[in-house]
Design a binder for these strands. Structure first.
Length: 356
DNA sequence: AATACGTTCAACCGCCCCCGC
DNA sequence: CGCGGGGGCGGTTGAACGTAT
């Protein structure tokens, strides 16, 4: 029983990717995007790979702005507090860490952070093979590795995953020991950072009812976008309520700190934070366009200020392949100004690709 | 120097969810 | 409404490399 595999295992290559394969995949996606179909993609470009393998390679290694290497203390704090709150939801945790992939975070957690926090040495795989199905971990909580999948643990132990038990251990440790014990290697006695309300950031919390965007707000954003696009001869965007709902949800979730931190969702995204109130949609778009248009050098396809961030809002706005936009405004908590989010589909700003 | 053991991380596997038909 | 397929995700594996004995 079960479903057919997504690709013919006999005819696809497995294992490490060669530089040639990487180059082929990267060049194609940067030029054409994924086309919305990973399964068909390898055939199109003549790669003997499973579509899922291509997707993974792109997301975890080839796509722009991927961060590799050591995690910062701040990143460790985020991983720790989110793991305690939600467990091994690596994709959600990754969404809070720009440039990090879920795979990276998962690996980092399993190989380093967990040991650091639980203060135990993870048994080697060889040792694990000889281990009793249930045992006592360093912190005193029972961990049953047989667990849910039919091991010999008690019903209570079976009801809790080892991940949940780890989280309980972590929570107890952090509650009692926060000052003496830090998630990070640092021994500094600083107060734990205030992260945004987690519940507000979770994509699967109950959604508020989708309300159509106020017409003047939508047209304000849309017209300002399309005016900028018209100037470079790019076809107009259409307003998309799904994108607007996504933007609204993130803007509301972010209104507590109004930090310019991306949601890392499936769409392109421009963020804005202005002090005070009274910001209208056209003001927000104007802030992106007027300041950045001059910084974009179409001849070299780069930002004159050096960093791609310096004109990235503008290039997303005029990105030819983007067809839809949806935006939202939110008021920052404590009178700290106005926050705006615009979501774009398909997303733009692929490195090496010209916006128009 | 040889071997065993430990660590890291890219990649695979298989399940679940969502969306289009 | 049910079904099928693709995408997304978490768990796991295995190869390569590092370290200890």
């Amino acid at each position: 029983m079960g479903r057919a595999p997504c690709c013919d295992k006999a005819s696809v290559k497995k294992g490490p990717w060669s530089p040639e394969e990487d180059a082929k995949l990267k060049a194609y996606i940067e030029e054409n995007g994924t086309g919305g179909n990973w399964i068909a993609l390898p055939q199109k470009i003549g790669l003997k790979r499973c579509g899922k393998s291509c997707r993974l390679r792109w997301l975890n290694y080839l796509r722009p702005n991927i961060k590799h290497g050591d995690f910062t203390e701040e990143e460790e704090h985020i991983i720790c507090s989110l793991y305690i709150s939600i467990g091994s939801r690596w994709s959600i945790i990754a969404a809070q860490l720009p440039g990090r992939t879920d795979n990276d975070i998962k690996n980092y957690w399993n190989t380093k952070l967990k040991k650091k926090l639980l203060g135990k040495r993870a048994p080697s795989r060889r040792a694990r093979a000889n281990q009793e199905p249930c045992g006592l971990a360093g912190g005193g909580a029972a961990i049953c590795s047989g667990g849910i999948n039919g091991g010999s643990g008690t019903a209570a132990a079976q009801a809790l995953s080892s991940s949940a038990l780890e989280r309980i251990q972590l929570h107890m440790r952090l509650q009692g020991l926060y000052n003496a014990f830090s998630c990070t290697t640092s021994s500094s006695n600083v107060a734990p950072p205030q992260w945004p309300k987690l519940e507000a950031l979770l994509p699967n919390r109950p959604l508020p009812p989708v309300q159509p965007t106020d017409a003047s707000l939508a047209s304000g954003f849309l017209d300002a976008h399309n005016a900028a696009r018209r100037q470079v001869g790019v076809s107009p965007l259409r307003w998309d309520e799904k994108l607007a709902a996504y933007a609204r949800r993130y803007a509301e979730a972010r209104s507590g700190d109004c930090a310019l931190v991306h949601s890392h969702g499936p769409y392109g995204e421009n963020l804005f934070h202005g002090s005070g109130g009274g910001w209208k949609p056209e003001d927000v778009v104007a802030a992106w366009v007027s300041q950045e248009r001059a910084l974009y050098d179409a001849r070299s396809n780069s930002c004159r200020a050096g960093s791609s961030a310096a004109c990235g809002h503008y290039t997303q706005i005029v990105w030819r392949r983007t067809t839809a936009v949806g935006c939202a405004l939110a008021t920052c908590a404590g009178g700290r100004g106005t926050y705006a989010v615009c979501s774009y589909n398909p997303p733009g700003n692929y490195v090496g690709v010209r916006p128009y």
